[in-house]
């Protein structure tokens, strides 16, 4: 089984988000870029599975749709253990364009299982995995919180709105994962960092992909009003305020 982990590159989650003066795009100066946290968990779990002798996983690759400045972050994925990486060299405007580029690589390189984070910490599209599955005409499973593999099948747990299901599925398929799939992301070792340099990071040229949704401007949230402090010895005061002033 060949696994492809889709990877978006996002600002570190502690970043204060600022936009350029015209409010049309993100102010990227000073931003530390990281692997999207869910994608990092997906990669962690994929690597854990590959290390199990009977999992049948022969390859774990990562893919990113974006420009060259993402390469240092992609290198990190190689340093923690991914076998190879792909980067399709295009600044995609939206989820549809990203899914379209991904589908081309998945078909050409014959991947069996594609894993994506259920959301991206930047533009929160939460759509790429499902769009990709639809383009490939593959089955897909979303909100996955556990994954195991055995030769030609996978066992997953899916958290739906009111229930959790345990499912046995047969790739090819796409799964989108959420928290719980793996505990802690791996930290690259020095040996891993050195080894990553000799692993393939293939730059691919994009195919024509049209989308019809794009951001045109941004705004920062309004300042919240000041916090009203309440004497810890008078909790009833808080209860009154909540009932009368906040209508709750």
């Amino acid at each position: 089984m060949k696994i492809l982990v889709c990877m978006s590159v996002v600002p570190d989650t502690t970043t204060q988000i600022r936009f350029k003066p015209d409010m049309n795009s993100l102010e990227t100066s000073g931003i530390q870029w990281i692997i999207n946290p869910w994608d990092e968990l997906a990669l962690t779990r994929a690597l854990e599975i590959r290390e199990q002798p009977d999992s049948g996983v022969t390859q774990v690759s990562v893919i990113h749709i974006g420009l060259k400045d993402a390469d240092p972050v992609i290198q990190k994925a190689l340093a923690v253990g991914a076998d190879s990486a792909y980067r399709v060299n295009v600044a995609a405007a939206g989820a549809m364009e990203v899914a379209c580029q991904l589908s081309e690589v998945v078909k050409k390189e014959h991947f069996d299982l594609v894993i994506a984070g259920h959301d991206s910490a930047d533009y929160n599209g939460s759509a790429v995995g499902e769009m990709l599955a639809e383009l490939l005409d593959w089955i897909s499973f979303s909100s996955i919180c556990s994954l195991a593999a055995a030769k030609d099948s996978i066992t997953i747990e899916r958290e739906m709105d009111t229930r959790t299901e345990t499912i046995i599925a047969h790739p090819p398929c796409v799964i989108t994962i959420q928290k719980g799939i793996a505990k802690d992301p791996r930290i690259p070792s020095l040996r891993g960092i050195m080894g990553a340099r000799s692993k393939p990071l293939l730059q691919l040229e994009p195919i024509p992909c049209a989308g019809s949704a794009a951001f045109v401007k941004f705004e920062n949230p309004a300042q919240r009003s000041k916090c009203r402090m309440i004497d810890p010895a008078k909790p009833e005061e808080l209860v009154e305020l909540l009932r009368n002033e906040a209508n709750v």
């Binding site: 939206g94 549809m96 639809e134 897909s140 909100s143 949704a213």
Partner: peptide
């Protein structure tokens, strides 16, 4: 919004060649 919508809506967008926005 919910797990089912997030699982279905992006596929519907592809099928209808529609622009998509969540949240």
């Amino acid at each position: 919004d919910g797990a089912i919508s997030r699982a279905v809506a992006p596929r519907v967008a592809v099928r209808l060649q529609a622009g998509y926005a969540a949240g």
